[in-house]
């Protein structure tokens, strides 16, 4: 399954990936913080929507991503 960037608040359209808490091949639990994103005025942790192994990280640290973009693939 794909990890999709959820809404970060009214009026926020994009954010920058600041840190991945896991690497490809590692196992993450459901609701465990997976990635940190920053906007101009706040930082957010995005939790993993499911348990699984991170197959592929699709957006690297420093990338700007839009709400609804796929950030990673889990299996």
């Amino acid at each position: 399954m794909k990890v999709i960037l959820p809404e970060l608040g009214e009026g926020v359209e994009e954010a920058v990936i600041s840190s991945w808490y896991f690497s490809e091949g590692e196992t993450v639990g459901k609701d465990e913080d997976l990635v940190e994103l920053v906007t101009d005025k706040a930082a957010f942790n995005v939790p993993s929507p499911a348990s699984g192994v991170i197959k592929k990280i699709l957006c690297r640290e420093g990338n700007t991503v839009k709400i609804g973009d796929a950030l990673a693939e889990l299996e």
Binding site: L8, A42, F44
Partner: peptide, 27 residues
């Protein structure tokens, strides 16, 4: 912050993921 000269945003400026439904309706 590696992208600007601004210091990295500290942990106390972290927000939980919001439930935007009511805010969206109001907007």
């Amino acid at each position: 912050n590696v992208y600007t000269d601004t210091p990295k945003m500290p942990s106390w400026l972290k927000k939980g993921l919001p439930d935007s439904k009511t805010a969206k309706e109001l907007s």
